[in-house]
Write a protein that binds this DNA or RNA. Structure first.
Length: 212
DNA sequence: CCCCAGATTGTCT
DNA sequence: GACAATCTGGGGA
């Protein structure tokens, strides 16, 4: 049975076990957000259909001192949303793909959490079509892959994930992940600050971008 | 304008 | 594990 049969169920805050995560959650320490968002659900509304899955892998990009952060050299046209309020998407392109972050901390600090992988749950058939792949483990096991599976492009940069009518939201059922089941490593694919242990993932998940 | 690096992925060895 | 494909934003001239 689908977890999210009717979009309005989880988009209505008051009467469901799943609720849209509030802005307050994101307006905090980026490393905490990167860990606590694990186990929550990234939801993409596409007309009447719903795509989404459980967040199983993230990376923290820190304010001020993080040379790997896109905000490190200051605000530009591309990264402007990073310098705004928390709880908005930062969608950017890299090579042929896109990546999606959620802005954290306070305005002007440019903290964010990169969503690196989700476990596909809803709209799997459609995600397979967007990805042109049939193997469920190849759908969302990487930042570029999941954006392709969810049809997330730069037009969705700056989306408020805390607003119920947004095309991208994050919902939770309040089940906290046991800290013991969270793995930690250096971030992947960067050339600066490559030793900082700012990648977080669910140890037992088969849907992360890399299994070690 | 031109140049180039980059938070990637798919394919091949 | 290595590497090509591919493209956009930003910095320098």
């Amino acid at each position: 049975m689908p977890l999210f049969k009717n979009p309005e169920v989880f988009l209505s805050i008051k009467n469901t076990q799943y609720y849209i995560v509030k802005r307050e959650f994101y307006t905090k320490n980026t490393i905490d957000v990167a860990q606590k968002i694990l186990g929550m659900y990234l939801i993409r509304k596409l007309g009447n259909t719903v795509l989404g899955g459980q967040v199983v892998e993230t990376e923290a990009y820190l304010p001020y001192q993080d040379k790997a952060s896109h905000g490190y050299r200051g605000q530009t046209l591309r990264n402007a949303v990073l310098f705004g309020e928390a709880g908005y998407t930062y969608v950017h392109s890299i090579h042929r793909y896109h990546c999606i972050d959620i802005v954290t901390e306070g305005s002007g600090k440019a903290g964010s959490v990169l969503i690196r992988a989700i476990k596909p749950i809803e709209g799997i058939t459609i995600m397979k079509a967007f990805r042109n792949k049939n193997n469920i483990h190849e759908l969302c096991s990487g930042p570029g892959k999941l954006c392709q599976a969810l049809n997330i492009k730069k037009e969705l940069n700056g989306t408020d994930v805390t607003a119920k009518n947004s095309e991208i939201t994050i919902i939770s059922n309040n089940n906290e992940i046991n800290p013991n089941s969270i793995g930690n490593s250096a971030r992947i694919g960067i050339s600066q600050a490559k030793n900082l242990p700012l990648r977080f993932y669910l140890k037992n998940s088969l849907f992360v971008s890399r299994r070690s």
